[in-house]
Design a protein around this nucleic acid. Sequence first.
RNA 1: GGUUCUAUGGUCUAGUGGUUAGGACGCCGCCCUCUCACGGCGGUAACAGGGGUUCGAAUCCCCUUAGGACUACCA
Length: 484
Amino acid sequence: MERVRFAPSPTGHLHIGGARTALFNYLYAKRTGGKFIVRIEDTDLNRSTSESESAIIEGLKWFGINWDEGIEVGGPDEPYRSTERNHIYEPYVKKLLDEGKAYYCYCSEEEIEKERQESLSKGETYKYSGKCRNLTEEEKKELEAKGIKPVVRFRVPDDEPIIIDDVVRGKVEFNSNDIGDFIIVKSDGIPVYNFAVVIDDHLMKITTVIRGEEHLSNTPRQILIYKALGFDIPKFAHVSLILGKDRTKMSKRHGSTWVEQYRDAGYLPEALINFLALLGWSPEGDEEIFSLEELCEKFSLDRVVKNPAVFDIDKLNYINGIYIRKSSIDRMVDLCIPYLKNAGYITDEFAKENRDWITLLVSTFRERISYLSEIVNHVSILFNDEVKLEDEEAASVLKQEHVEGLLDELYDLVKVSDKLDNEIIQNIFKELKNRTGAKGKSLFMPVRVALTGQVHGAELVNIIELLGKDNVLKRIEYTKKNLL
RNA sequence: GGUUCUAUGGUCUAGUGGUUAGGACGCCGCCCUCUCACGGCGGUAACAGGGGUUCGAAUCCCCUUAGGACUACCA
C-alpha cells in the first residue's frame, strides 16, 4: 500500500506551492487507495511557531484535504511533530556514531564561515574540510572541557555515485565527492531536517516522497543516510516549482502567495484546488473543471510534468468565476455577507432580516465577479444616494430630448405602484414604452443612467428591484434636478 | 562559481519518430442583449538556436543559449 506524506515546517503560512504539494500527495493517496500522513517538521526552533502550524493545518482543512494519520488526528507513529520525536532520533545518531559513519565536530560557526568565504573567493565550491573527522578521545575531551558543544557530522563516503530514480524527473545522478560532511545534529542536540525526515519517513513507512523540486539537491544527502542506516529507500517524486510572472520562485513580490490571502479575497477552495491541480499536472481529455473527488479518480504521477509553471492569476480568476456561478446561491450569499459588511453596506442585523434582498443582490452580481470581494465594487451604485455620472457617454444619454418626459412618466408609474417586484417592473417598462413611444436602447439606457449614473451594468430590472420604490423615486428626483 | 533541473503560442498544457501540432486562459471578432458581464460561436498565436541519428524529427543524441533550484548548526 502506498503511504505518502506532507511534512511542512511551520515557519510561515501555507504557501501556494506547499498547498499544491499537499494536494498532489493527497490525490495520489486517494487514487492509489493509500494513506496520507501530515507531519510537522519543526526542527528549526528559531523559526517554527505554533501560529504557523495552525495556519497550515487550517489551510489544509479549508481545502477539504484531510489526512489519515498525523498531527491532530493521531496514528501509529505518534508524535507527529519532530521536536517531540527527539528520543526517537537519538538511537540512530548513536548507531551512526558507533559505526564511525558520523562524528563529532567542534569547529565553530565562525571558523566554518571563514573557510566558506575563502573557498568562495577562490571560486571553489565549499566543502567541509573534514578537520574533526579523526579526533582522538583525548582531543575530544579537551575540546569539550573548553565548553564547546559539538555538532554531529555525517561522514560522506568517497566517490560514490548516488542515483535518484525520480518518478517525475527520471534518473538524476550525483556524486558524493560534491558533498561535504554535513551536519545531522545541531549543537543544541536537535537533528537537522535532512536527518529527521529520513528517520521519520522510514519509521512512518513512507513509500513515495512527493515534494517540491527545491528538495532535489537535498536528496543525495538523505539517500546517504538511508544507506548508512540500512533503510529501504523510498521512491521520490520531485514536483517542479510554481513561479511568479518573472519566472522566479513565487514569493511576496509576486503578490499573494499564501492560500489565506486567496481565501480572504474570496477565492473558493474548490476553485483553487482545481487551478493548482492543473499546474504541473494535466488530465487526459480536454475537460479542465474538476471537483476534488473527480481529481482523486483522475490524478496520476505519470502525468505530472517536469517543467516549472508560472502562476497565472487570469486563469485562476476564470476558474473561480465558474465555481462562483455554479455554486448554490445560498452558499454564495453566506460567503458574500462578510464582504458587504466590511464595506459598511450592511450590518449583521440587516443581513438576518433581509436575506431575500441579499440573495437577489448576490445572484444579480455574481456573474460579473471572479472573486467574492469584488462584489463590493459592483454594488456600490446601490448605496450611494447621489447619482454620479460615470463619464461623458453617460451624460450624453441624459441629454437626449425625450429623457425628461420619460423620467416623469417613470416617476408616476413607480409612485402609483405599492411595491416593486420583477413582474411589476416589467409591466412598468411596458407601460412606459406605450406612453412615450421609446423602446429598446432609448427606453432602457436613460433609466439606467438616471438611476446608476453608468451606461453599463447588471440587469436593470434587478437593479430597480434592489433599489426599491423609495430610492428609485429619490434618484429620479435627484437626476432631474441635478443632471438634466 | 559549483552541483543539478528545465525548455511547445504571452500563460497552463496535449503530444513519446510520420498530426493541417490539439485543448484551456488571455486577447480580438460575431451572436445573445438596453449596456456591461455571463453564455455560445469563430479567430489570433508555439515546437529557443545549431549540429547530428533517421527515408522521416516537437519527439532520440550532442553543443549553445536562456531560465530555475540548491549551495546554512533553514526547510
